[in-house]
């Protein structure tokens, strides 16, 4: 008769010499199980709060960006809407899709093979590897005319991926504002791209010259024309990454087709 009483089994297990194989495997198994339950329950229980934190952060940055553009706050008030319209665009055709922006997760889409494409190596100036075929953008309309568009851009920086929003005025070539959404660059050096003083250098800058090639860049030292933004001392690579984000995302493989439609006036929601 085998004794199946769990208590006596437990006692017998504990009484085994520590070096026995049975006990080694049993202890490893019990510790692993208890730890995995602990970790997974913490992750599951706290996930809603973390997601809410992230969403609040993104919204706060978008609001701060709009607040930093006085003219836009007025248009918003005049047009009677209190927030921007969000649409998901197809980067390949530049068309608006019917994907619900509320449920679309751009970060997840960027790694999903069905919803993303590999960036050709020679075009991948931002070092991203893949990009989602769809992207959520914010637009502000006055009547039927698009007055402002906010595009999410990103690039791999010195030690983190930098995410930013860039707002363009209605000529789709003048920067209305730039706001860094997320970065993990060197504190005190690269992370100074988050400072309002640096982001305030962007409004009014021009993206492309008359021939249409993108020239806007963060330069070393002082900017000398409308296509240059002052660099931050000690953060050359972070600055280059922000330039790369602008070059890639406003280029042909980024929002190029969307901007072309916006300029032609064939961008319809």
């Amino acid at each position: 008769m085998v004794d199946l009483n769990p208590f006596s089994l437990w006692r017998r297990l504990l009484a085994l010499p520590n070096e026995s194989q049975t006990k080694t495997i049993a202890v490893a198994f019990i510790v692993a199980t208890v730890c995995s339950v602990l970790v997974s329950s913490a992750a599951v229980l706290l996930a809603p709060m973390q997601e809410a934190n992230r969403a609040a952060e993104r919204q706060a940055r978008l609001d701060a960006m709009i607040a930093s553009m006085p003219a836009m706050a007025e248009i918003l008030e005049a047009s009677g809407v209190d927030t921007l319209e969000t649409v998901v665009v197809d980067l390949r055709s530049g068309e608006v899709t019917d994907i619900d922006p509320g449920t679309f997760d751009a970060r997840a889409a960027a790694t999903d093979p069905a919803m993303s494409s590999e960036i050709p190596r020679e075009l991948d100036v931002a070092g991203l590897g893949r990009r989602a075929d769809f992207a959520p953008i914010n637009i502000l309309r006055e009547g039927d005319v698009v007055r402002l568009v906010i595009l999410p851009i990103s690039a791999s920086g010195y030690q983190s991926t930098i995410y930013a929003n860039i707002a363009l005025e209605d000529d789709f070539n003048t920067v209305a504002a730039l706001s860094i959404v997320e970065q993990g660059e060197t504190p005190g050096l690269g992370s100074r791209i988050e400072e309002p003083a640096w982001q305030a250098l962007w409004p009014g800058k021009q993206i492309a010259d008359e021939s249409g090639s993108i020239r806007l860049s963060v330069v070393r030292g002082r900017a000398s024309n409308a296509f240059e933004v002052d660099g931050i001392t000690g953060a050359t690579r972070t600055g280059s990454a922000v330039s790369a984000a602008v070059h890639f995302w406003l280029g042909e493989y980024g929002f190029g087709p969307v901007l072309a439609r916006l300029r032609e006036g064939t961008f319809a929601p």
């Binding site: 520590n18 070096e19 202890v27």
Partner: peptide
């Protein structure tokens, strides 16, 4: 008292 010496670091 119940951690086997052979796998103590992993535990």
């Amino acid at each position: 008292r119940h951690i086997p010496g052979s796998i103590r670091l992993i535990i």
